[in-house]
Nucleic acid binder design. Sequence first.
DNA 1: TTGTACGCGTTATCAA
DNA 2: TTGATAACGCGTACAA
Lengths: 341, 341
Amino acid sequence: MTTNRKEVARLAGVSEATVSRVLNGIGPMKESTRVRVIEAAKQLNYELNAVASSFARGKSGNLGVVLPHVPKVHLFSTYYFSEILSGIGEAVRSKGYGLLLLFRDPATVYDYVSLFRTQRVDACIILGASAVDTDMEGVNRLAEERLPFCVMDQRFDNPSVSVVAADHEQGSYEAVKHLIDKGYRKIGFLNGSPQYSNSWDRMTGYRKALNDAGIKLDESIIYEGNYSRTSGNRAANLVYADLEKLDAIFVSNDRMAIGLMQGLRERGCQLPEDLKVVAYDDSDAASLTEPPLTTVKVPFYEMGRLAAEKLLSRLTDKDETETVINEKLQTELKIRKSSGN
Amino acid sequence: MTTNRKEVARLAGVSEATVSRVLNGIGPMKESTRVRVIEAAKQLNYELNAVASSFARGKSGNLGVVLPHVPKVHLFSTYYFSEILSGIGEAVRSKGYGLLLLFRDPATVYDYVSLFRTQRVDACIILGASAVDTDMEGVNRLAEERLPFCVMDQRFDNPSVSVVAADHEQGSYEAVKHLIDKGYRKIGFLNGSPQYSNSWDRMTGYRKALNDAGIKLDESIIYEGNYSRTSGNRAANLVYADLEKLDAIFVSNDRMAIGLMQGLRERGCQLPEDLKVVAYDDSDAASLTEPPLTTVKVPFYEMGRLAAEKLLSRLTDKDETETVINEKLQTELKIRKSSGN
DNA sequence: TTGTACGCGTTATCAA
DNA sequence: TTGATAACGCGTACAA
């Protein structure tokens, strides 16, 4: 069925080793034999058996991407998901690797190490990790083994955990500062789930911006959701009740902001007149809402690409310097109508 | 580094073959040896080398999912993408397969066959195929080789091409019928790119619904976009000019509907008062718009899962009946405010 | 510049 | 019920 190296060798009248060398472009070779082998390969429609090759090399040639999977529930905005994946895909393709998608059950400790031990991946990127015990445990075990991996957008105390993230403290700072600059002082904050370092960073940026402007933090206008639209909608209740205490509100992602705005409008609010909103992500939906969302754009695509490139080049390069990846990309405030512009 | 079968065999005091049999649960074996092998494996922290196993079996153990990739451009709503992928992921995981993600350049003929020949995948699912020459060519070559693959949501003339699709004719019929039932007669249609069989099916459904209601088709209120929001926005120009000819409009997907509605509103339209809209997909955005979209829900998740399950079970089952997959799933109309409810 | 020969870890076949 | 052993297709050190 599948034509193999032996047949090519026979047709070209050379040894199998020569076929390998020619096809991999390794070592010196006479032009004439090179041509002969190429011809034979083409004629026989020969293609390298990737599995056999992986086996011989002791590498799978795959980059693993692990994501949490709860059937029918979207933990992440599909925007985040598809952007990061596209970025990773780009890097993977240009380096000639495969991209193996793995789904993990968020409730149990995922065995990343076995992913490597069974040689299914040469490196891996972890999406959607949080600070809950199971996630920490899994990642820490991986770090112990000093395997090539990288966590996306979640910080860990463990200094040997590689991370590519966005600078959410800066992003949040600028978001809140934008509101302050426009003259608003009573700025609330609807944050997301505390198990993401993300959320903490946003909080830090929020506090710092208020502090730098000499505005006292008002704990009573800090709300918590879980990054879902529903949770934003739920928060509308509280926010609506506190409306006289609020000029504006900073929301940790677009989805919650959308839910919040819907909830507020249902209760008769005019937006942005009654409340200015700044959100986070700059997902597709951000410009769809009424009013369109002022929001912090996160370079998900670039984050994915960067993480993958760093990992893969570490695999390729002989420099075994075993460096921990620690990148923090800048965000960018996109100003639209929801903040009163 | 990696402990292998030989070490387990030695520790358990059996042959390597026995280790394999025990670990794969194949053939009869004495309980005592079974336990002994399991113990040894556990003690040595042994895990099967997936690559070696694939090699020996002559199968990669991966299901390939091929999607078109234009850097930074989203041909598909990320909703479609992530839903289908989740569905496939579910099936793949439950069957113990890997999911290999492949990106293809839409401009060139993708060599699916080599995917199999190089043994990178045991089966594959093609997303985003269209009727343009390069796509047809690629898929037809694949069909010729009688390899296990399946195209998602795109029909081909070639009867040996497996397809899992949604019934867009029915979906469109119901969408338009809904408008007719509400008493509207002047119903326009903003369709998507003609290279998708999808678009043709929607057209058929549209025509049939009008016809069944005794409404004469008016070519002058049929518009064409390319499924992008921008194209919907562009269409707003024409639609606005034709407003007196229109009671309602059926739009081939949510994104275009959103662009259209934005464009119309910018021109001073009141929605849904001035024009009723029914869209398609029921993506996340559908319920975010103002007014929320009446739209046709497509079971993307189930389509992904079904395609993957069919393919994988064909691989597993001894029944080599080489059946062509041809599934058409039903859609469901979700009624919201945009159609005047 | 090219060929020989071995190893990679598993599956599967055949004997015992 | 278990053990030998031959593939599997390729990479690569070493020899020529």
